[in-house]
Nucleic acid binder design. Structure first.
Lengths: 151, 151
DNA sequence: CCCTTGGAGTTGACGCGTCAACTCTAGGAG
DNA sequence: CTCCTAGAGTTGACGCGTCAACTCCAAGGG
C-alpha cells in the first residue's frame, strides 16, 4: 500500500488551506510594510541584514549566503533598491570594480523606522495566533524541511 | 507591556526558517510538476477544479470563488493557459460573449496524468514529514488564519 | 607571458500574484 | 425607449522569484 494514490479529501483541504493561509499572511505583511514604509518584505530582509552587519558592508555573495537566497535574486532586488536609493553598490576594489553593498542614509532611516513595526506585525499576525505547542510544531517542521530541501 | 517590541532572536529565526521552508517546498513541487507535466502548481489547481466540476464548465467568477483567488489572478492565468491550449474560453452567451471556461483535450490529458503524481509529491514532501500532532497544529493554524485574513 | 578556467556578479526572459484602471453588458429607474 | 449604474471580466504595470546565459576578472599552469 505504498504505491502513489491521491490524497484524502481532508488532506486536499488542509493543503489548500495551508497554501491560502500562507499567501494571505504574506500579503498582509507586505501590504503593511508597503503602506507604512514603502518597502517589501524581501527588501526589509536585505536592509536588516546590512543593518546588523558589523562594518555595514557586504558583498552580494555574502548577502546571498546570509539570507540563504540565490545570488540572482539578490542581484535583481539590489538593482531595484539601488534605484530607489535604499542601498549603494560602492566601488572599493583596486580596479574600480563594484565590490560592496551598503546602506544609504535613506536605507538606514527606513530600517530604523520599519523594524519595530514589522516585528510587531509578525507577532500579531503569526506568533500571537499560535499556541506554544503549535509554535513548536511549526518550528520543528520548518527546520526539518529546510534541512531536507536546502540547496 | 503590550507596546510593540522587536522579536526575540529565536522568533526571528523561526520566522525566517518558516518562510524559507515554505519557499523551498513550493519550489520543489513546482519544479516536479513543471518537469513531469509542463504545468505550474497554479495551473494544476485550475485544471483540477474544472476537472471535478459537473458539466466541466465554469465562469471566471465561479472559478475564482471556488479557488478563493482574485479574479484578475484567474484571468491572467487563463490567458497563459489558453495560449497553451490547456483550456478554452467558449462562446456560449446569446450575443457571442465569452462566457465559460472548459478543459481542452490536452487539458484533460494533463490533469489525468498529473493528479496522482502531484498528490504523491505533496504527500512525500509535506504530509509524510508531519507527525499527527504537527498535522493537527498546521490544520488549526491554517483554518484560523484563513478565517482571520480572508477577504 | 599567455591562456584557460572558475568564481562572482549581472542580465533577460518568463511565470506568478497584486493593484488599479478599464471595457462591456445586462438590468433597472425614469 | 433611454440612460446609467453595478457587476463581470480583462488589461497593464509592477515587484517577486527562478532559470539559463552571459560578462568579467583573478589566479594558476604551461
Amino acid at each position: 500500500m505504498s504505491e502513489p494514490r491521491t490524497l484524502q479529501a481532508e488532506q486536499w483541504e488542509l493543503w489548500n488551506d495551508w497554501m491560502q493561509a500562507h499567501r494571505l499572511l504574506v500579503r498582509e505583511l507586505d501590504r503593511d510594510l508597503q503602506r507604512a514604509h514603502g518597502i517589501s518584505k524581501a527588501e526589509f530582509s536585505v536592509l536588516v541584514t546590512l543593518h546588523r552587519t558589523p562594518g555595514g558592508r557586504l558583498r552580494v555573495g555574502e548577502l546571498a549566503e546570509s539570507l540563504d537566497w540565490e545570488k540572482s535574486r539578490v542581484a535583481h532586488l539590489l538593482t531595484r533598491m539601488e534605484s530607489r536609493e535604499l542601498v549603494a553598490r560602492t566601488d572599493s576594489g583596486s580596479s574600480g570594480r563594484r565590490i560592496g553593498i551598503e546602506l544609504t542614509a535613506k536605507g538606514r532611516a527606513t530600517v530604523a523606522s520599519a523594524l519595530l513595526d514589522h516585528a510587531d506585525n509578525i507577532r500579531r499576525h503569526f506568533f500571537d495566533q499560535l499556541t506554544p505547542e503549535q509554535t513548536e510544531a511549526v518550528a520543528a517542521w520548518s527546520r526539518q524541511t529546510v534541512r531536507t530541501l536546502a540547496r
